[in-house]
């Protein structure tokens, strides 16, 4: 497996890009919805897909995972995903649409969760492409619900040489505090290209 040479400056730059994107997403969500959502500054790290599998199991505990996936292709290709344990995703949506404590993740709620994920991921991908002058071809965002074991078997995650840029952020809605993960799945070459672009842009 190829190794990734990443400095703390690189990580800080990526964190800044994610933070701008997450902030943009939060701003759109607050404009659209009546409840106030704040998204914390993400904690960013790059890990191998095998380490990610372990993290995901801990993150989901015994739950299934609900994720919104946005695939992109260009100079850097991969997929961006916003992930929550399904129960957490469902409570988030129940609060957003004011549906009490009903936690069933049906097709309507999955669609709403997809829109919330779309807003956050568009913010993140938008800031990456805007600031780094990158253009991507995007697929239509899709909703995925599966257990952590099957989630890590997805082709975008399971490749041996793929790495995950994991940005963990916290959604705070009134009194509800929930953790959500934003993950960017890229192969080593793509992450290296991202780092090179950051180096050029920020003259690191």
């Amino acid at each position: 497996m190829d190794k990734i040479n990443i400095s703390s400056e690189h990580l800080e730059s990526i964190k800044e890009l994610c933070n701008i994107g997450v902030g943009r997403g939060a701003s759109v969500l607050n404009t659209m919805l009546s409840c106030h959502i704040s998204l914390s500054v993400p904690n960013v790290k790059i890990i191998s897909s095998s380490d990610f599998k372990e993290e995901l199991k801990l993150f989901a505990k015994e739950n299934s995972i609900s994720a919104v996936s946005l695939a992109f292709q260009g100079k850097i290709s991969g997929s961006a995903q916003l992930m929550f344990p399904t129960e957490t995703a469902s409570s988030l949506i129940a609060v957003l649409v004011d549906e009490g404590d009903d936690l069933d993740m049906d097709a309507l709620r999955a669609g709403t969760f997809c829109e919330v994920g779309n807003i956050v991921l568009n913010g993140v991908m938008g800031s990456i492409s805007n600031i780094l002058d990158l253009t991507f071809d995007y697929s239509v965002p899709e909703y995925i619900e599966t257990n952590p074991e099957n989630f890590v078997k997805k082709p975008s995650v399971a490749q041996d040489d793929s790495h995950v840029l994991l940005a963990r952020t916290r959604f705070t809605i009134d009194e509800l505090d929930i953790d959500g993960d934003i993950a960017l799945f890229m192969q080593v070459g793509a992450i290296q290209a991202l780092i090179e672009t950051i180096e050029k842009k920020f003259e690191l």
């Binding site: 659209m32 649409v97 309507l108 709403t112 938008g126 991507f136 965002p141």
Partner: peptide, 11 residues
């Protein structure tokens, strides 16, 4: 050229 934007039926 940004990503697709989704508007759900519930919202």
């Amino acid at each position: 050229g940004g990503p697709p934007v989704l508007f759900s039926s519930q919202l």
